[in-house]
Write a protein that binds this DNA or RNA. Structure first.
Length: 894
RNA sequence: GGGGACGUGGCGGAAUUGGCAGACGCGCAUGCCUUAGGAGCAUGUGCCGUAAGGUGUGAGGGUUCAAGUCCCUCCGUCCCCACCA
């Protein structure tokens, strides 16, 4: 799927590491005596390492491939050889209908852009594939599919740039992605079920989903103020506007009033907020929760004072003015009202004497960008419209204003202003000299409206509030709502920040929205037997900017007949949002061979929800929210069997951003990492491991090539130890070394059993390195060496699929290592015979003792007290208290 | 303003229920090997100290035999949302 390239303006960091301490320490050093020269040299390590980084970069620029001195070790040749063999026999094909232990290992599919596979995807697949390979080895039937999210503006823009039709460009990109990049990584994808969202066999069902939503009232057409990108010449969903800019191109987004298609995702707000059945990380849940933005409060209607209404209304306005508030307890403090300038009532209730000023203000606001308007630092502006409202709780007559700080798109587009208890209202009241009335009294403080310099938005006791005077803070909101409901003045209400999903796009490269407009019968869905509505090939696919898609200028496409009456009608010419394609793709992988159904129910029952889904955190409020919505709707409408449950993904893990030098990669920064380059230099195994070793996988972080040599060395040593064992001297190994080697590798099995399922790849690699370091110290007889080496290669296989395959063959294993079972560790070999117990005196480590693992407490205490360290630091004093922590330490207090 | 994540050597980062801080790797230093080094091998490497020892996980306080981990008060960084009523 598309990577949101314009998400951030500033360089994000998964983990901040302010090196404040460095400064503090440096300062402290000044006061001490000068350090000896030797140490000073040591500390000067940093500049030298920079030199090395430069050197590595130089090296990368050279076209000479990296060569290794060890005979026979040629990662490139090995990797290409095994790729071919795996491909020939479809090694990673999964039999979906005969799986005993189905394990759906999903990862976000890429957008085949012109730039090539993004390093973020390489990162995702490196971890998810290692995870999946482990799952396969422990006996799961892993289904690991891959495909392409090839519709959408990004690809279309690229096609426009190079002047070719996206229908020609995208297949070419897909081939390149598949053949030269994704396969080259050595991931265990089942390519027999590849999907391409631009294939009519696929988007037929994207259109079908649209129709199901339309029939259920979940897709509707409405005129509203929408986000418009003046460069991409299309509308955008709220989720695709980042800091007031287009997610795709970074252009300042403007508001335009247009008739568009929407999905009623807000109807699902409450259910999307419920993560109780979703095993997501806290970060992901929080991002979604913030995005949905639930506020609880009350809806209250203010009547318009009849005598203030302009003549054209006839002195009466049915319905009045609805407002939403999270602080109904401050209702008695409302001293004026503010409408958004775009509020539909503005025209109707503005008095003639104010009309000119109001009109001027409204048109000035329309020219502002959303971003400028959201700037809280700006001084408040606004205009009185001449009308008055009646506060329903105390019948006070209060003036109605319009101001751009009130947004039409949230709540009802109108607010009651309580300047004493809301900072924005306070600023507005001060500027226009409107009254301020205190209705919440803070404990131990008296607020004087005349001298207040800011609002009091915090807790207090209700005052000046008629029947509710004296109600304390913890109950005031609840009490007021009850009182409002009893008196018929208002009702409890929940508001969401989330808005309906704007689904139509005035572009060419997408699935045409399958709707037909008839003058008599209105909007009708295209009948099922006429799906898919094919996207026509055309030379004129350039966006028009008129608010209509290029398809609108193709009469052959537009002209059709009404499915109800058969009379001439016209087709919808907009295409659907790219995020609809990807909102259901994981369902299609399971049923690629069927053309008569979007997905097969039996397959769905066996394989869904997705067992494990890996992707990037940047999609948490886009793709992952949309996918959950579509899933829930499909379950509700009976298109998915109820037993699949509320959530499409059993376990979702989104990793953090992949940075370069602490900054997000971008073309403008010139710090984009091209994974191909690294694969060419070091081989795929090395690049995979380098990414996984750099730090916590789930947190993401910097892509640093400066440490890549560590992995190169590690694999070279693995090779050397297995292929050219120099340790088996006279064909005999000592019992001590045999035991040591076996214990090391069995402990590694155990450690990896913990790390791989938890995505702890960095510590898994560290364990493999540590194990190898131990093994290299052991002198082993050939048969013992082979026994241990085979175990080692098996547990290396998920991480380094190529290297493991090559070594497995050389150890006489049968093809393929990736069809072998994960080895079981021997419980007897993972516990040490002798253990080290730490001896602490007054909380400090003073000695250590070696004891048999079976030794009892008294024995150990006695031994601990007899140590030299104990004697020395107890200085003859008796032990006041002795704490023994089994197998770990003896703590003696004197 | 609201919400969240986090702060450990020169660097990336380890550290079940509180139990030997700094695993593993990079870098660096010294030595060996080599025609050569962008190769390999060995040893060392938190800080102060010749050493004994002291000290040390953003700062300060607390609980505990024992705190990177738990509690309190600050400081800082990053992310998301945000004139959201």
């Amino acid at each position: 799927m598309a990577t949101t390239s314009k998400k951030k303006k500033t360089a994000p960091k998964a983990k901040a590491a302010p090196k404040k301490k460095v400064a503090t320490k440096a300062k402290a050093k000044v006061t001490k005596k000068a350090a000896p020269i030797k140490r000073a040299t040591k500390r000067a390590a940093s500049p030298a390492s920079k030199k090395t980084v430069k050197r590595v970069i130089e090296k990368l620029k050279s076209t000479k491939p990296f060569t290794l001195p060890i005979a026979d070790f040629d990662p490139h040749a090995h990797e290409l050889k095994w790729l071919k063999r795996w491909d020939e026999i479809n090694l990673y094909k999964t039999d979906l209908d005969h799986a005993q232990r189905p394990f759906y290992n999903l990862m976000e599919f890429p957008y085949p852009s012109g730039e090539g596979l993004h390093v973020g995807h390489f990162y995702t697949y490196s971890g998810a594939d290692t995870f999946g390979r482990y799952q396969r080895m422990i006996g799961n039937d892993v289904f690991q599919p891959m495909g392409f999210d090839a519709f959408g503006i990004h690809g279309e823009n690229y096609a426009l740039k190079i002047g070719e039709n996206p229908a020609i460009v995208m297949p070419r990109n897909m081939t390149r992605f598949r053949e030269t990049q994704i396969k080259r990584m050595g991931a265990a994808f089942d390519w027999t079920r590849e999907i391409d969202t631009t294939n009519p066999r696929y988007y037929k069902w994207t259109q079908w989903i649209f129709i199901q939503l339309f029939n259920a009232g979940l897709a509707y057409r409405a005129t509203s103020l929408v986000n418009w990108c003046p460069k991409d010449l299309t509308v955008l969903a709220d989720e695709q506007v980042i800091d007031g800019q287009c997610e795709r191109c970074g252009t300042e987004v403007i508001k335009r009033e247009l008739e568009q298609w929407f999905f009623r995702i807000t109807k699902y707000a409450e259910r999307l907020l419920d993560h109780s059945k979703a095993d997501f990380t806290e970060t992901t849940k929080t991002l979604q929760r913030n995005w949905i933005g639930r506020s609880a409060g009350a809806q209250v209607t203010f009547k318009i004072a009849p005598e203030s209404l302009p003549p054209q209304t006839g002195g009466d306005l049915e319905g009045g003015l609805e407002i939403f508030t999270t602080r109904p307890d401050t209702l008695w403090g409302a001293t004026f009202m503010v409408l958004a300038p775009e509020h539909p009532l503005v025209d109707r209730i503005t008095t003639p004497d104010r009309a000119a000023k109001v009109k001027a203000y409204v048109s000035a606001t329309a020219k502002e960008s959303e971003f400028d308007r959201a700037d809280t630092a700006r001084a408040k502006t606004g205009v009185f419209i001449g009308a008055y409202a009646i506060n329903p709780v105390n019948q006070e007559r209060i003036p109605i204003w319009i101001a751009d700080y009130v947004l039409m798109t949230y709540g009802t587009g109108a607010i009651m202003a309580v300047p004493a208890h809301d900072q924005r209202d306070f600023e507005f009241a001060r500027k226009f000299d409107l009254p301020i009335k205190v209705v919440v009294q803070p404990i131990g403080q008296v607020l004087d409206p005349a001298t207040m310099i800011e609002a009091w938005p915090h807790d207090g006791v209700m005052i000046n509030s008629g029947p509710l005077d004296g109600v304390p803070a913890d109950r005031s909101v609840e009490k007021t709502i009850e009182w409002l409901e009893q008196n018929g003045l208002g009702k409890r209400s929940i508001n969401y920040r989330l808005r309906d999903w704007l689904i139509s796009r005035q572009r060419y490269w997408g699935p045409p929205i399958p709707m037909i407009f008839c003058d008599v019968h209105g909007w009708q869905p295209v009948p099922d037997d006429q799906l898919p509505v094919l996207l026509p090939m055309t030379k004129n696919f350039r966006p028009t900017g008129t608010g209509k898609s290029p398809l609108a200028s193709m009469p052959k496409f537009v002209k059709t007949t009404c499915p109800v009456c058969g009379k001439p009608a016209r087709r919808e010419t907009d295409v659907s949002d790219n995020f609809l394609d990807s909102a259901w793709y994981f369902l299609r992988y399971l049923s690629t061979e069927f053309d008569d159904r979007a997905w097969d129910t039996e397959r769905v029952k066996n394989w869904l929800p997705v067992t494990h889904y890996m992707g990037g955190i940047e999609h948490s409020t886009l793709h992952h929210l949309y996918a959950r919505f579509i899933w829930k709707a499909m379950v509700d409408l009976g298109h998915l069997p109820p037993e699949v449950g509320e959530e499409p993904f059993k376990q979702l893990r989104l990793h953090g951003w992949i940075l370069r030098d602490g900054a997000k990669m971008s073309k403008s920064r010139g710090n984009v990492v091209n994974p191909d380059e690294y694969v060419r230099l070091y081989g795929a195994d090395v690049v995979r491991a380098q990414m996984l070793f750099a730090g916590s996988y789930i947190e993401g972080g910097d892509f640093r090539d400066s440490a890549i040599n560590g992995i190169v060395r590690f694999y070279r040593r693995v090779w050397d130890w297995i292929v050219q064992p120099s340790t088996a001297v006279d064909g005999l190994s000592s019992a001590v070394d045999e035991d040591k080697a076996r214990r090391a590798v069995h402990k590694a099995i155990k450690k990896l059993n913990e790390d791989f399922p938890a995505l702890g790849f960095n510590t898994a690699i560290a364990a493999l390195m540590e194990t190898l370091n131990t093994l290299r110290d052991c002198k082993l007889a050939p048969q013992v060496h082979t026994e241990v080496a085979r175990l080692y290669v098996l547990i290396l296989a998920p991480l380094a699929p190529f290297l493991a395959e090559e070594l497995w063959e050389r150890l006489g294993g049968s093809f393929s290592v990736h069809q072998q079972s994960w080895p079981q560790y021997d419980p007897k070999l993972v516990v040490e015979a002798m253990i080290t117990i730490v001896v602490q005196i007054n909380g400090r480590v003073r000695d250590r003792i070696e004891v048999l693992a079976t030794a009892n407490e008294e024995e150990i205490q006695a031994k601990a007290l007899a140590t030299e360290g104990a004697h020395r630091f107890m200085a003859g004093k008796p032990a006041k208290k002795i704490v023994y922590v089994a197998g770990k330490l003896v703590s003696i207090v004197v």
